[in-house]
Design a protein around this nucleic acid. Structure first.
Lengths: 206, 206
DNA sequence: ACTATATGTGACACGGTGTCATAAGTCAAG
DNA sequence: CTTGACTTATGACACCGTGTCACATATAGT
């Protein structure tokens, strides 16, 4: 988490910093990014950066978290829109992420995040899927999902469904970006796999 | 790929280098690893390292590839052992990976690989799952899998099944390691999810 | 012994990180 | 107003890792 000093900053200056950081993390991955570049772009002295953040990870995860929150709200609203149909809601998120990653500005940041996704980054995105039953954000989702249509008996099994969907969705996002698939090719692949997930990988014994 | 010079090295010296590199990559992730430490451990001068490798990534992916090959052979032999039952074969791989990551020596290397898994690392593991139909290694697997029991009509659909299984398997491996699950808890979670995958996430309309 | 080619070596320039002593600003109490 | 306590700003600096390069050494073929 950024330090208090960062949040005490004047709106304008904070935005300059955020923009500079985002620009650097759009250029290269977290690991290749250099604080020096952020300083140069933002026009602040070295020491100041360390007043606001612990290190570049701190700045990166601050930005990422903002994104993740947007995604989470998007999922909630999609669930409402599609009457709790989890597959439709998640497929819509998938699509909008790909479209987002066509926007100039957002594009390269999201690309870099996806191409360097690891468990820590993924957790930032999907913290609300915690197994921890006390987790509020998970409750939000659980309550909205129409569990009737799912092959689950209780909240615990629902957790596994979310895990599977998360895994397959991220896997497809990353695959799409790393192979430069067109949005329509990416959607075709993803929806094929969602279809398989729904009906099951085993042939129904006939 | 390591340079020719590396492969021309005397067996003994090459092994020293490999051990030193593995030690460093067991200590920390690829990005935190330092060539300097490898040099110190192996007792070779700086210039030599660059005779053998382009950079630390080169060394890392050389080691990783060795592992991936073992895994691949393991999958092949499991498929034979279980008469083409893909789920049993893959579940066995999952288990043996977790057990491997209990071995002193192997353990920390695998842990670091899993915790810092990204698409490039994952591709090293699963290159044999290429969509490219000309890919020999994929053929090996396709031929061995008993496709009768799967909900697929052709090789292309089989590709999607493999993609899903890869995504869920890696996701579980990473989850297990990052949450320090015991092997039996990890297996329980993984097998629950495999079960869901097999029967499908949608409730069968009754 | 001579030459060509491959390999070994470590000093060096470069660039990035995080820190620290010091300067500058803010604000409330006297 | 000014004094003092606290917060924020600054940039020089020590430290460390990287990749290179000119030079040294080994190896093998003629």
């Amino acid at each position: 988490m950024p330090k208090a000093t960062f949040f005490n900053l004047k709106e304008e200056k904070r935005q300059i910093l955020i923009d500079a950081a985002k620009q650097e993390f759009s250029r290269v991955s977290l690991y290749e990014a250099s604080i020096s570049n952020i300083l140069k772009t933002a026009g602040i002295p070295r020491g100041s950066f360390y007043q606001y953040f612990d290190d570049k990870e701190d700045a990166f995860f601050y930005l990422l978290n903002e994104h993740a929150q947007e995604r989470h709200e998007c999922l909630i609203s999609n669930l409402k829109k599609f009457d709790g149909n989890l597959f439709k809601a998640i497929s819509e998120i998938f699509k909008s992420t790909l479209e987002h990653s066509e926007d100039k500005g957002q594009r390269d940041f999201i690309r870099n995040v996806l191409l360097n996704m690891n468990y820590k980054i993924e957790n930032t995105f999907s913290q609300y899927l915690s197994e921890d039953v006390a987790n509020e954000r998970y409750d939000d989702i659980y309550d909205l999902v129409n569990a009737e249509q799912l092959n689950v008996a209780n909240r615990k099994e629902m957790f596994h469904v979310m895990q599977i969907l998360t895994a397959v969705t991220f896997h497809n996002l990353i695959h799409s970006v790393s192979n430069n698939l067109s949005i329509s090719d990416a959607m075709k692949k993803y929806e094929t796999e969602l279809g398989l997930l729904q009906s099951g990988l085993l042939r129904s014994s006939s």
